[in-house]
Design a protein around this nucleic acid. Structure first.
Lengths: 193, 193
DNA sequence: CACCGTTTTGACCAATCAGTCAAAATGATG
DNA sequence: CATCATTTTGACTGATTGGTCAAAACGGTG
């Protein structure tokens, strides 16, 4: 049916994103993507602007599908510390459950810095900021309701939490096993207790 | 003087390492290295086995020049918490002072995972382990001398500290500025107080 | 000054890179 | 069934990749 595309763009973006996730941007070739999607070279360039465009779309999809939706869900949890605890739990679980040990696309991208344009860096920073804001919101909410002690400083604690998230994601790629990751997650909770 | 090399191998390794550090392994070409060192292509292959070999040597040099020597120095500091504080201080300083925002070669490499062989992964893990061991040593020493409270669990705390180190190094590449990094470093110290 | 072992040099290789493009294929529309 | 807008296809581009190699350059040695 050549008068309309034979594939769903978002499917291709999703599959391409997973290749980028696994191999990194610089190490991923267009051929890798055509192999993974089955889409022929020309069709891909007919639908997208190129490698960079495809990557940006993948990054956006990653953000909304995995990060934003999860944060919205956790914001409905009453106990703020439990919400943060659940965040770290699922983080550790996701890290352990991934046989490819891909880590987090956002942080992987942050470390491929010079390969990327400013628009990509902004996407990464915005994604990180989104999580920090979530932490800040939960912490200040917890302090208001007396669940989290006033001695916890909201912004510094939130920033330390995201730093621990990064640490878990990076170290989970090989250096740390289950026990170590869980211990770090526990220390994160202790930080706001 | 063609019967002996006209360049110092370790100089070339150092310069090549800095290119890898800045651009990442996958994104660095042999031409980048010959440009940076002035060494011609053939000479480089005469002295080294290839890109991978050069990278491994750079990683080793990075470890001994920057990590190991610093840890040995800090182990001579009497107060263990001050030693750890100094570690984080110089970490934040190094991060802020680097105009290229290259981060840490060790962690950058950890996130370029699938581009690397097992020997590189082992080098990364050993480097990380070395820092964790340093933290554990300092914490347990501090607990013995009563400077660090017994309520601090040595291994989990040490692992949380290295996670924060990773966080500082990664977030320092763009997402976090001076204040944020210093706050995270302070939270690290609070963790063992 | 001829010889020798080593280093230097730049041309060269096949493979792969991101991206282009014209021709073929397609099915709705009249 | 012819036309049409669109997609599909794979061959193609020039550039770059990591790596090779034979010849030239060199200075110590006899």
């Amino acid at each position: 049916m050549p008068w309309e595309k034979s594939f769903e763009e978002s499917d291709v973006v999703e599959q391409a994103m997973e290749v980028f996730w696994q191999k990194g941007y610089a190490a991923t070739s267009i051929s890798d993507i055509t192999d993974a999607t089955g889409i022929k070279r020309g069709s891909l360039y007919n639908a997208f602007d190129g490698k960079h465009d495809l990557f940006v779309r993948g990054l956006l999809k990653y953000g909304s599908d995995r990060r934003t939706s999860k944060l919205r869900m956790l914001e409905t949890v009453d106990d703020p510390r439990e919400a943060i605890g659940m965040f770290f739990d699922s983080l550790v679980k996701a890290t352990l459950n991934d046989p490819d040990k891909k880590g987090c696309l956002l942080f992987n991208t942050a470390l491929e810095y010079p390969s990327h344009d400013d628009d990509v860096k902004k996407l990464v920073n915005d994604g990180i900021k989104e999580v920090v804001t979530f932490f800040e919101g939960r912490i200040s909410h917890g302090k208001e309701s007396g669940i989290i002690p006033d001695s916890v400083e909201t912004r510094p604690a939130a920033r330390a939490l995201i730093a621990l998230v990064v640490g878990i994601r990076v170290l989970g790629r090989g250096a740390f096993g289950k026990t170590a990751l869980q211990q770090v997650a526990q220390q994160a909770i202790d930080l706001i207790s």
